[in-house]
Amino acid sequence: MLWQVDPTSNTPLHVQVAACVRREMASGRLARGDRLPSAKEVAAVLDVNLHTVLRAYQSLRDEGLIDLRRGRGAVVTATDPGGDARLRTLVTEIVAEARLLGATPTDLTRLIESEFQR
């Protein structure tokens, strides 16, 4: 799988690392039960701190996309990783755009709610 981070970007590195995994899920190349490379491996490949990758993996676990087990590494557990990851990816992009434009979370929430009511 492809890993890419841009250290010059405003988006924190761990968010970018997590985005790599989500993109892979959204494209259907990571399915339920697949194992992710170890955090150590990813840290070496991208030349980033191990904790950056661990933080990315933890956020993916908190979103219910993967499971972290001692000795077994990170395993994809989401029933529909594609769908979950697509939504997450879109939200990440919206929030990044909102930050860029100076929009607050309240502004975003209002926009999303109005979209639902259409």
Binding site: M1, L2, W3, Q4, V5, D6, P7, T8, P37, E41, V42, V45, L46, D47, V48
Partner: peptide
């Protein structure tokens, strides 16, 4: 097609 500042890697 990525910016030159992007760090790239691939695992398989």
């Amino acid at each position: 097609d990525v910016p030159a500042s992007t760090r790239l890697g691939w695992t398989g």
